[in-house]
Write a protein that binds this DNA or RNA. Structure first.
Lengths: 398, 398
DNA sequence: ATATTTAATTCAAGTTACTTGAGTAAATAA
DNA sequence: TTATTTACTCAAGTAACTTGAATTAAATAT
C-alpha cells in the first residue's frame, strides 16, 4: 500500500513568519494606503506583530510609508503602500514561431515587452534564445538582474502525455520529454513557473486587469486554439495533471466540423483564431494573421462578420455551460485576438437566461473583455510570478 | 472604495498548533498505522513536535496507540491509528417529500440512517422536525450527544437568488429567504454546514468511498435533477455564490428537449431520475420511483434500456467535457439511482478518445461508480463534517 | 553469543515570532 | 481646556516548534 504524500505540511514559527508577511503584503497591495491598526484587525494579528512585519517589509523595500491621514478622531494613521518597483517579474511566451518576453513591475504594469522570431523551436534551440531574450529585455527595462522575482514561462497546453492522446496538435515539438521548469531554472538560476496561456491570462486579470477585486472568474483565451483559465476562491485551477481548461475540445455541435483531435464539433473549430483563418481561407481570403483580422474587422468584411456570428453562437453555449458549472462572478474573453473582434463576439452573444449567473443584482456584466493582443500571454506569465509572491496560500507551508 | 476583506488571516502559535494537529490527524487517518518518525518526515515537522502532537491527540481520543511494528532494522515503530469512534458526524438531507438522517463515525462508516416522510416542507415546519430526527437518530446510534462533531445539511441547489432565474424548479419552497445554516445552528447548537447534494456526494467518496486516495475528482450526482461536485486539489469547489456544479443545465443537444429552465436540450432532460420518469411515463409506465426503476432494470425493460442508451450518449458528451475542463483523476457517477442503472450507464458510455483523460498509464478507470442509493446525500452531509474536521486547510487561519 | 548498525524515540535546552499590558502620542469632540 | 478616541511603541511574557545529545530496541554482522 502506497503511503499518501501529505501535500499539506505543518507550520512552525519560521513558516508562519513567511505566511504572515504575505498576508500583510497582500492586504496592503489590495487596500493601499492603509495603516497598521487596520491591517491588524483585518488579518487577525496583533498590532505589535503587524508593526514588526511592516517594519521588516519596509526595510526590504516591499512597503513604503506614505505619510499620515488625518480627518478622523484619534491619532492619525501612518499609512503604508505597496512598492511596485521593489522588484519585477518576467513573463516569457514560448510559441512555435516566436518568443515573447515581458517585464512587469509588482503592480502588474508593463515596463517593456520584446519578441524575437524563431523557427524550429526545439528545446535545445529555443531555451538558450529565450534566456538571452530574457536578459536583454531586463536590461532594456533598466532593471537590476538581482531584483528579478522570477520568470513565468507560458506554453500552450496540454502538458505531459497529451501528445499521445490526439489533443495538442498545436503543441511545440520535442517539449514533451523534458522538464521545462528545471531546464529554465538551470539556465536562468531563478524561480521559474510554467503554465498554460489561458491560466496565465486569468491570473493577469486578477493581478492588474479587470478582475483585481474578483476571486472567482473564468477566462476564455484565444490562442492558437481556445483555452480556459479558472480562478476559484482566488486560486488558479490546474487539474490533476496540469491540463485543466481544455475547453477548445468541448463539443458544442454533435457531428459538427471535424477537429484535429479526432472528434467532431469541438468549440475550437468554430471559435478560435485557427477557426477564423480556416473559415476565411475557404472563402478566398489569404494570409490571415492577427493584423489581417483587424483590417477585415475595420472593413466590416461580411465573411468575418458571418464567422463572428457563428462563433458567438458556439461561445454562448460554452459560456452558459461555464456559468452553470463554475458559478463565477464573471466570464472574461481575451487573448491573442484583436480587441474589436472580442468586442464584436461579446456583443453578439446570446446567453441562456436559465443560468445561475442570470442574477438581477449583478455588479459586473456576465461577460467582459479582458486583456488581449500579442503580448497577453507573456504578461500573464509575469503575472503568475507576481501572484505567487503576493498571494498567501497554504502552499507556503509546502 | 470598499476595502477588501482579507479572507486569509495571519498565523500565530495557537493557530499553528491547530493546523499542525489537523495535518498530523489527516496523515494518520490516511496512512494508518503509522509512527511518529514517518509522520514527522511527511508533514515537515520535527519528531519532537510530532511526538507532542500525537500525545495530545491520543489524550483527546483522536489517536490510538496500536503496538509496535518489528521486522525492519532499528527500534520498532510505535504505531498510531486514527480512532474512528472518538466522535461522530451527522448528515441531514432535506427533501420536499422526506427528511433523511445519517450518523457516521469518523472513518465515514454508516452507523445508523433514518428517515421520516414530510409534506409541505416549509422551513417553519421542516426545521423542528429535522432537529427532532437528528436527536432521535443520534440516540438510535447509541452515541453521546456531547460527542457530536457537527451536522451537514444537504439540500438541492442552487441557493440564493436562483429562484428568480428559472433554474431550481425542484427546489424546496420558502427556503430562499432564510439563513439555513444559522437556523439549524440555533436549533441544534452545534457546527452546521449546508451544501448541495452533489458536492456532499463528492466529499463522501473522498472520505470513505472510491476516492480516498484521489485529490481531483468530478462526481456526477443523480438527484431529482443532475448535479456536479468537484474536488480539486483535495478541496471541494463551491463557486462564487455557492452554486457551483449546475451541470444539469448544460446543453448537450441544441434545440433539444424543452427544459423547465426555459432552455432546450439540457443534459438533465436526458440523464436524470426525472428524465427517466418522464420518458417511461410517456411510454405507458406508471408510478416510477427508484424501486420501480430497479424492477424494470431486472426485467430488462426495453423502454428503460432505450432510455439508458440515450442517456449514456448525453452523459458521454458531458463527461468528455468535464475531463477536458477539470483534468480529474476520475469521474464518479452516483446518487439516488439504482446501482444497476448506474452500472449500465457506465457500460454504455462512449467517451471521446481525444481527451486529456485518455492516458495510457491510467491507474483508475476514467469513469467509476460511486456511492448510490436513498441515503447517499445524508451520508454525504455527514462526510462534509468529517472532511472539515480532518482536512487541514488555510481556512484554519480564518 | 557478542558487537555493530540502524532507526525510533526521549529529554532538556534554545529559538522564534507572536501576544499582552502598560504607557505615549496626536487628533477630534465637548 | 478637558475628555475621548484611536494609533502606536516598549518591554516582558508565552506558546510551540527546533536542535542536539542521549537512550532504547530491533536486525544484522562477526
Amino acid at each position: 500500500m502506497q503511503k499518501t504524500k501529505s501535500a499539506i505540511k505543518g507550520g512552525n514559527a519560521g513558516r508562519n513568519r513567511g505566511h504572515n508577511r504575505r498576508v500583510v503584503l497582500d492586504y496592503v497591495r489590495r487596500n493601499e494606503p492603509t495603516g497598521r491598526a487596520e491591517i491588524a484587525r483585518s488579518c487577525g494579528l496583533s498590532i505589535q506583530a503587524v508593526s514588526n512585519i511592516t517594519d521588516a517589509l519596509a526595510a526590504d523595500g516591499f512597503l513604503q510609508m506614505v505619510g499620515k491621514a488625518t480627518g478622523k478622531r484619534g491619532k492619525p494613521v501612518v499609512q503604508y503602500r505597496f512598492n511596485p518597483d521593489q522588484s519585477f517579474a518576467v513573463g516569457l511566451e514560448m510559441r512555435p514561431d516566436a518568443l515573447v518576453c515581458a517585464v512587469l513591475n509588482l503592480k502588474g504594469a508593463l515596463i517593456v515587452a520584446d519578441r524575437i522570431a524563431i523557427s524550429n523551436a526545439t528545446p535545445a534551440r529555443a531555451i538558450p534564445l529565450a534566456c538571452e531574450l530574457v536578459e536583454k529585455t531586463i536590461e532594456k527595462a533598466g532593471r537590476a538582474r538581482s531584483q528579478l522575482l522570477g520568470v513565468g514561462v507560458v506554453m500552450p497546453g496540454p502538458f505531459g502525455e497529451s501528445a499521445l492522446s490526439g489533443i495538442g496538435e498545436a503543441n511545440l515539438p520535442g517539449w514533451q520529454d523534458i522538464d521545462i521548469k528545471q531546464s529554465f531554472e538551470a539556465a536562468l538560476s531563478c524561480t521559474v513557473v510554467v503554465e498554460n496561456d489561458a491560466t496565465a491570462a486569468a491570473i493577469s486579470e486578477r493581478v492588474a486587469g479587470v478582475a483585481t477585486k474578483i476571486d472567482n472568474l473564468c477566462f476564455i483565451y484565444f490562442g492558437t486554439g481556445l483555452g480556459l483559465g479558472v480562478i476559484a476562491g482566488g486560486h488558479a485551477q490546474s487539474g490533476a495533471f496540469g491540463n485543466f481548461g481544455e475547453i477548445g475540445h468541448v463539443i458544442t455541435q454533435v457531428d459538427g466540423t471535424a477537429c484535429s483531435c479526432g472528434n467532431h464539433g469541438c468549440l475550437e473549430t468554430y471559435a478560435s483564431r485557427m477557426a477564423a483563418k480556416t473559415y476565411l481561407k475557404a472563402r478566398g481570403h489569404s494570409a490571415i494573421d492577427t493584423e489581417a483580422l483587424s483590417r477585415l474587422m475595420v472593413a466590416q468584411d461580411p465573411d468575418l462578420q458571418a464567422w463572428i456570428s457563428r462563433a458567438a453562437k458556439h461561445l454562448s453555449l460554452a459560456i452558459g455551460m461555464l456559468e452553470n458549472i463554475f458559478d463565477p462572478e464573471a466570464v472574461v474573453l481575451g487573448g491573442a485576438m484583436p480587441d474589436s473582434i472580442i468586442e464584436a463576439l461579446i456583443a453578439q452573444l446570446s446567453l441562456p437566461k436559465g443560468s445561475v449567473a442570470n442574477r438581477k443584482e449583478r455588479s459586473i456584466a456576465r461577460v467582459i473583455k479582458g486583456a488581449s493582443g500579442r503580448n497577453t500571454a507573456a504578461i500573464g506569465g509575469a503575472s503568475i510570478i507576481i501572484h505567487q509572491a503576493t498571494t498567501p496560500a497554504l502552499s507556503l507551508f509546502n
